[in-house]
Design a binder for these strands. Structure first.
Lengths: 221, 221
DNA sequence: ATTTACAAACAGGCTTGACGGTTTGTTTCG
DNA sequence: CGAAACAAACCGTCAAGCCTGTTTGTAAAT
């Protein structure tokens, strides 16, 4: 019989852990069963706490869901910033960045987003609660991308267009995976996009190694 | 007292109208209140028929929702095909096509799609029911786009990449509108994309009017 | 001892699918 | 043709299930 591990945790510790377990459970269930299929009962059970504990920590289901999304996004923003420092140290290509972004989005992030977007669309309270968090996420994205495009001597505005297009493309791809299961298709599309970005970045600094893709049409002139 | 307009409709006519009213109501409500906020009660009320009539025509809520989506998609496929004939007659540019596609998607189509995608993701029956309809939609898209790219002498594969990227971009943009209300942003992004497509199409037929966008970097060489 | 964290039971509301009954249209047959 | 038999469309009600938020009770920390 092992000694019971009871290190007499402080209230703050107990509380924080319970809260975190609930947040994690909420995100996992949203991902696995969808928002509609995620009841407060399920969340409490998955978290291994009672429903009473849940109602103690969160005023309503909506509040819990919003907090869970916020927590998820903050963690991903952390990942993004740590990646940004690596880019700043010159350890990244546009290909790698696109691959990284697609990885982050398709791991769980955008599938969970697809779960709560409808709710955000029809529930103003919920939406307003989430907008600032999403803004932080975009700011973090802008930072890392600005780093990259600046290095290529690209104008910030043009770079931002490229970033925004990239993110929209990734969103659209992931949304499509739900009704079209075709990995080679997505692989091909992502490679196509990486090549496009490479070409545009190369075109942005013609003084260095010059544009390689755009030279092809010159034969015709 | 006006004569009651009772042209003694046949059973088939009565039935078809009731059914159609239910389908239309279901799509409208999905768009306005979301899938979760659309009960069979609401649908029957909006359609102006009794709930009994609803259960008579559709075995279950799920079946009704699926039929409504199918109906919506089939109608849009119709629009698409009629647009395709206009393209075949040479009455369209890539700019106009992109604008048309964005218009179709953002009018209702993709917002409704965002409503049922989560359900499709977690409900295999529902998903399998929808896959063939979505395939028809993509086939219609391929047709119209192939028409356009062929006219520009572009290889079918390259053209398809462009189409797929365009559709994913549009999907991602529309998804983003829910948490980012910023029309100029979307306008700008769409214009950016139209320019990109124009450049790629121009590059595909250098023998005609030659590439205009890609000539800029030549100064540096 | 008092506040905080947690637990369990409860009540109200909503939704879906099922069922019996009614109206309307169609077909059969004298 | 006309009535009767049949089938389809339609209506209103009901019961079972689930979910959320509330309330009441207990244990743990300060």
């Amino acid at each position: 019989m092992a000694q019971q591990p009871k290190p007499r945790r402080s209230q703050a510790e107990r509380s924080a852990e319970t809260r975190q377990r609930l947040l994690d459970a909420a995100v996992s269930l949203m991902h696995e069963r969808g928002l509609a299929g995620t009841s407060t009962n399920d969340i409490a059970e998955t978290a291994g706490v009672s429903r009473g504990a849940l109602t103690h920590h969160f005023e309503s289901r909506e509040e819990l869901i919003a907090a869970a999304i916020e927590d998820m996004l903050d963690k991903v923003i952390g990942e993004l910033k740590s990646y940004a420092t690596r880019v700043a140290e010159g350890e990244s290509s546009s290909d790698a960045l696109i691959e990284f972004l697609y990885g982050v989005m398709s791991d769980r992030l955008f599938y969970v987003t697809l779960e709560y977007l409808p709710e955000a669309r029809h529930n103003a309270m919920f939406r307003h609660r989430l907008v600032p968090v999403v803004s932080r996420w975009h700011a973090a994205l802008d930072g890392i991308w600005g780093e990259l495009t600046a290095r290529y001597g690209m104008k910030p505005e043009a770079g931002r267009d490229l970033l925004n297009a990239t993110m929209c493309l990734i969103r659209g791809m992931i949304a499509q995976t739900i009704l079209r299961d075709d990995p080679p298709y997505y692989r091909r599309l992502l490679d196509f996009w990486k090549a496009s970005i490479r070409a545009q970045l190369a075109a942005a600094r013609p003084e260095r190694n010059g544009p390689r893709i755009v030279t092809i049409p010159l034969r015709g002139q």
